[in-house]
Design a binder for these strands. Structure first.
Lengths: 152, 152
DNA sequence: ACTGAAAGGGTAGTAAT
DNA sequence: ATTACTACCCTTTCAGT
């Protein structure tokens, strides 16, 4: 991992369709060297995946909701079961187990408030282990992304 | 936007390096038809970008923090100024303006707790418009992604 | 110093899209 | 036609003697 790698990563995490040749221009290596480094970065897991980012609004999911969930009591079985359910649920985009007031912070994509209500019935009210949850409706997605700061 | 499109999108949002030929196998179209549809989906903005997802832990950012921020008073200037600062800050991965107890929910990537403390000094304590903030340290990233549920 | 191994870059030819 | 991949060769570096 040197400066060349950092420069390559900075590029592909903005646009992974960029050709090795164009990347090489901004980096100061040959296209082939860039390819070799990309392969290494992929194999070593620094690059976890290359994916297309879609526009939720154009796919019938215009609403983002952030929910803070508290469990009744934290024992391992309950914890793991809840994590498993969150991973399965397609509405759940992100789920974090955190310190602080709530136990979990969840980011959901739903079509509308009815859809969210249905979700809460199924996953929260239908689960006696959940003591409470707090709903935050997203009014503005000020910034969205998974870009990682790169210094090199 | 038909079932073919949905199938294509479901594939590329998991792996954008998949060739048109392989996509076409799972979809029931010719590779050329898949290419044409991909172009249309990109041009129309359904596909917003194709990017590489990197592993934060392998790049010196092992800590994720979720912060809930409340503003002193919500006037437009203050709101917009804060949004602008969040968009600029490289530590800020995601920022949502929400209903609920807090005004903003922010997801940050930092190297360690000292880095986070520095961030709070600069952006929260150094800003008289911020009345309070609540910090949640992420212990487990149960689920991370920007995948959108697709029904076709 | 000298040698040999290892790592990494460049060139170029081949395959894939 | 363009781009990706890979095999081959060359340079640099560093370890051990």
């Amino acid at each position: 991992m040197d400066t060349f790698d950092y420069k390559i990563l900075a590029q592909v995490q903005t646009d992974s369709r960029m050709t090795a040749e164009r990347i090489s221009e901004g980096v100061g290596l040959s296209p082939a060297a860039v390819q070799k480094r990309l392969k290494r970065l992929r194999d070593s897991g620094v690059i976890r995946a290359e994916v297309a980012l879609l526009d939720p609004r154009k796919l019938g999911h215009p609403m983002t909701v952030i929910t803070e969930v508290s469990l009744e009591r934290e024992n391992l079985n309950v914890l793991d079961a809840f994590k498993r359910r969150m991973r399965q649920a397609e509405e759940v985009q992100q789920c974090y187990y955190t310190t602080g007031e709530a136990d979990f912070i969840i980011i959901l994509l739903v079509r509308d408030i009815q859809h969210y209500e249905k979700f809460t019935r199924e996953y929260f009210f239908g689960n006696s282990e959940i003591s409470k949850f707090k709903t935050n409706i997203v009014m503005d997605q000020v910034k969205v992304g998974l870009k990682i700061p790169i210094h090199g």
